[in-house]
Amino acid sequence: AEIMKKTDFDKVASEYTKIGTISTTGEMSPLDAREDLIKKADEKGADVVVLTSGQTENKIHGTADIYKKK
């Protein structure tokens, strides 16, 4: 799966169907969080990951919607 910015995804959204939401939390780098989200998306058969939230304090927390091409 590839990560797309919401603004970029909005241009092609009609080509995809939302298949779920994924999240990651833990003591990790932003890059590790990104890789974890991609891994989870791949496991669910998603083609595209669109980040919906991200937070960093002591731990990273990120959520994303996942989509499959129609």
Rank of each mutant, 00 (worst) to 15 (best):
T52V: 10
T52E: 08
L37M: 06
K69W: 05
E35A: 15
G45S: 05
V48E: 01
I22V: 08
T24I: 15
K39Y: 05
T52I: 10
I60Q: 12
E43S: 08
G45H: 07
Q55S: 13
A46W: 00
K69F: 06
T52F: 08
M4L: 05
K6Y: 05
A64S: 03
E15K: 12
M28C: 09
F9M: 03
G26M: 12
D8A: 06
E15H: 11
T52A: 09
Y16T: 00
T7V: 13
M28I: 06
A46P: 00
V49N: 02
L31H: 12
I60F: 14
K68N: 03
G54L: 15
M4T: 02
K11C: 09
G62H: 15
E2T: 15
Y67G: 00
S14D: 10
K18C: 10
I60S: 11
A64V: 07
I60G: 12
K39H: 07
K11Y: 05
K18E: 02
A1Q: 02
T24S: 06
T63P: 07
T21C: 11
S29V: 05
G45R: 05
K69A: 05
D10C: 13
G62Y: 15
G62R: 15
A13Y: 06
V49C: 04
E43V: 06
E2Y: 14
E57T: 12
I19N: 01
G26T: 13
I22P: 01
E57M: 12
K59E: 14
A33F: 10
Y16K: 01
T56N: 11
L51E: 01
K44E: 07
I60D: 08
K39T: 06
F9Q: 00
M4P: 01
T17D: 09
M4R: 02
A33G: 05
K40G: 01
H61I: 15
V48L: 08
A46E: 02
A33I: 10
T56F: 13
K5H: 12
D36A: 13
T25I: 10
T17C: 15
S23C: 15
K69L: 07
Y67C: 02
L51P: 04
T63L: 08
E35R: 15
K59A: 13
K68Y: 04
T56G: 13
G54Y: 15
V12I: 11
K68G: 02
D47K: 03
K39E: 04
I3A: 03
D65I: 08
K59N: 13
Y67T: 01
G45I: 02
A41S: 03
S29I: 05
T25A: 12
L37G: 00
S53K: 08
S23K: 10
M4D: 01
A1T: 05
V49G: 02
D36Q: 12
D65L: 04
D65R: 03
S14N: 11
P30S: 14
I66S: 00
T7C: 13
A46Y: 02
E27N: 13
D10G: 04
T21I: 07
K40T: 05
V12T: 03
K18Q: 07
A33C: 10
G54T: 12
S29E: 08
K70L: 08
D32R: 10
M28L: 12
K39M: 07
K11S: 06
A64N: 02
Q55L: 13
E2F: 13
L51A: 01
K40Q: 14
I19E: 00
I66G: 02
A64Q: 04
G26E: 12
G26Y: 12
T24N: 05
K6F: 07
T56D: 14
K68W: 04
I66T: 02
D42I: 15
D32G: 08
A46R: 00
T7N: 09
T24Y: 13
E43K: 08
V49E: 00
A13P: 01
K18P: 04
K68A: 05
A1G: 04
D32C: 13
I60H: 10
E57C: 12
S29Y: 08
I3D: 00
D65N: 05
E35H: 13
K70Y: 05
D32V: 08
T25G: 11
G54K: 08
A41L: 02
E2P: 03
D47Q: 06
M4N: 01
G20A: 05
G20N: 00
G20W: 03
G45N: 07
K40H: 05
V49W: 00
T63Q: 10
K6G: 06
A33N: 05
S29T: 09
S53H: 13
T52S: 11
S23N: 08
E27R: 11
E15Y: 13
S23D: 07
E15C: 15
R34W: 13
K40M: 09
E57H: 08
G20I: 01
V50E: 01
R34I: 15
D47L: 04
D47C: 09
I66M: 06
A13R: 13
K18L: 13
E35C: 13
D47M: 04
I19Q: 02
S23F: 12
N58T: 11
G26H: 13
K69M: 06
T7K: 12
A64W: 08
I66A: 03
Y16I: 02
T21F: 07
S14H: 15
K59P: 13
G20Q: 00
E2Q: 15
D65K: 03
S14L: 08
L31G: 10
K39C: 07
E43D: 07
A41M: 01
T52L: 10
K68I: 11
D47A: 05
E43I: 08
K59V: 12
T56S: 12
A41F: 02
T7L: 10
N58P: 09
A33R: 09
I22K: 01
N58S: 12
S53F: 15
K68D: 01
K11Q: 07
K70R: 09
T24C: 13
T21G: 03
S14Q: 08
A41Y: 00
E15I: 07
I3Y: 07
E35S: 10
E43Y: 07
I19C: 06
V50K: 00
T25K: 09
E43P: 00
K44M: 15
D32E: 13
T56K: 08
S53T: 10
D36L: 12
I38D: 01
K11T: 05
V49S: 00
I38T: 03
I38S: 03
T56V: 10
M4E: 02
K6S: 09
K44S: 07
G45Q: 05
G26K: 11
N58D: 14
S23V: 10
T52Q: 11
D10F: 06
S53Y: 14
L37K: 00
E2C: 15
E57A: 12
I22S: 02
T25F: 11
A41Q: 01
A33S: 07
H61W: 15
D8V: 05
G62N: 12
S53I: 14
K5F: 14
I38Y: 03
K59T: 13
D65W: 05
K40V: 05
V49Y: 02
D32L: 14
I38V: 08
S14T: 10
K5P: 08
M4F: 05
M4Q: 02
F9G: 00
D10H: 06
K59H: 12
K11P: 06
D10L: 10
I66R: 02
D32A: 13
I3N: 01
K68Q: 07
Y67H: 03
I3T: 03
H61T: 13
K70W: 05
E15R: 11
S53E: 11
T63N: 07
M4S: 02
K44N: 07
E43W: 06
D65V: 06
M4A: 01
A64G: 04
L31K: 14
G26L: 11
D8N: 04
Y16E: 00
K18Y: 15
D42K: 13
A13T: 04
L37I: 05
E2D: 06
G62W: 15
E35I: 14
A41D: 01
Y16N: 00
R34C: 14
Y16R: 00
A41C: 03
K5L: 14
Y16C: 01
F9L: 03
I66V: 04
I66K: 02
Y16P: 00
K6P: 08
G62P: 09
K69N: 04
K59G: 13
I19P: 04
A46T: 00
D47I: 04
S23T: 11
L31R: 13
M28W: 05
T17H: 10
I19G: 01
Q55H: 11
E35W: 13
K5I: 11
T24V: 11
S53P: 08
L31D: 14
S29G: 09
A33P: 05
K6H: 07
I22F: 04
I19W: 04
K40E: 04
D47P: 01
D8M: 05
T52M: 11
V12K: 04
M28F: 08
T63Y: 09
D8H: 05
I19T: 03
G26S: 11
E35G: 06
S23I: 09
A33L: 10
Y16V: 00
T21W: 07
K5S: 15
V50G: 02
E57S: 10
E2G: 06
I38H: 03
T25D: 15
I19H: 01
T21L: 04
A1H: 02
G26P: 09
L37S: 02
L51Q: 03
T17W: 14
G54D: 14
T25W: 11
K70E: 04
L51C: 12
S29W: 10
A41R: 01
A13L: 04
V48D: 00
F9E: 02
I66F: 05
N58I: 10
S14A: 11
I38G: 02
T52W: 13
T63V: 08
I3K: 01
G62I: 15
E15D: 10
A41P: 01
I66E: 02
D47Y: 04
T52K: 10
K68C: 05
I38C: 07
M4G: 01
T52G: 11
G45V: 02
T17I: 14
G54P: 14
T56R: 09
G45K: 06
K68R: 10
E2W: 08
D47E: 05
Y67V: 01
R34K: 09
T21S: 11
K44F: 14
I22R: 02
V48S: 02
K11V: 07
G20P: 01
M28Q: 08
